[in-house]
Design a protein around this nucleic acid. Sequence first.
DNA 1: ACTTGACCTCAACTTTGGTTGAGGTTTTAC
DNA 2: GTAAAACCTCAACCAAAGTTGAGGTCAAGT
Lengths: 156, 156
Amino acid sequence: MSELDDPVFPVGALSVGEVARRSGVAVSTLHFYETKGLIRSLRTEGNQRRYPRGVLRRVAVIKVAQRTGIPLASIQAALARLPDGRAPTAEDWAGLSRAWRAELDERIRKLSQLRDQLDDCIGCGCLSLKACPLRNPQDALGAQGAGPRLLEPDAG
Amino acid sequence: MSELDDPVFPVGALSVGEVARRSGVAVSTLHFYETKGLIRSLRTEGNQRRYPRGVLRRVAVIKVAQRTGIPLASIQAALARLPDGRAPTAEDWAGLSRAWRAELDERIRKLSQLRDQLDDCIGCGCLSLKACPLRNPQDALGAQGAGPRLLEPDAG
DNA sequence: ACTTGACCTCAACTTTGGTTGAGGTTTTAC
DNA sequence: GTAAAACCTCAACCAAAGTTGAGGTCAAGT
């Protein structure tokens, strides 16, 4: 009988290698995620990691969120707000999805705005002119100064 | 008479501090861009940088391209293809804009696709199911945060 | 028993896009 | 003529998101 079936671990507990294989994420990445508080593990007597099956969904969610461009630190913060004791429900996950969808929407909106302005500028080649909206993004990095805010309103 | 008007430099040559002030980019960043081949400078007898006025447009273009998510190395490559001896024309810049617009379009397309899939998944909370399109991305996004993207699914 | 593969920790290294500071020179301004 | 401001180079450092390797332990198959 394999250690993985040891009754002190959740039914069907997974080793780190198994999680890696099934999630498509490198073992080193799983270790890394653990140091960042994105996932957690129990340890066997021999100090090896054992994950509950739910970790696969969790990793899947992390990867989707990453694809939307959300940094790991924010993902960690969002996951930390999931209910602590019980396994998250479909509605818990859906809540996260909604929040991330909103961020994604915002990113798409900003990029589209930039594209439209780039379109306008293609015609005139004005990129360096004072009047060009692309050249005067007062909020490019610091959002300081009370400029015209032509670009990326609400940056943050 | 100021050194900046020394006839051996292009009319209206700019010091690095002036470029920084007028472009909104830190002096250290201009130095950095120079090491990366994004901009070039002439030197005074005393080894200080002098930039032709065109550098302002060039820096403006760099910043716009960066905002579309294009890495500096690609921006450098694109700028390197500009005609070498004469100052770039409006059409030269417009050509760059068109190329970047296409990349931007592609990024927007991928993000929109991701959003739509996220929409579909909000209803069912399916994020970890095998059938979920979000879990099986055929269509990875390019790098957009910092850091290597070595593990994008099926990237090559 | 032994060998192999999977696992452990910890530290160092990678890339991108810069910033910060030390130590020294040049230019400008009074 | 001197002080301050601006400039120079070079090296080290930052963050994010990991990867790689060294040195050692654990588990599984024969």
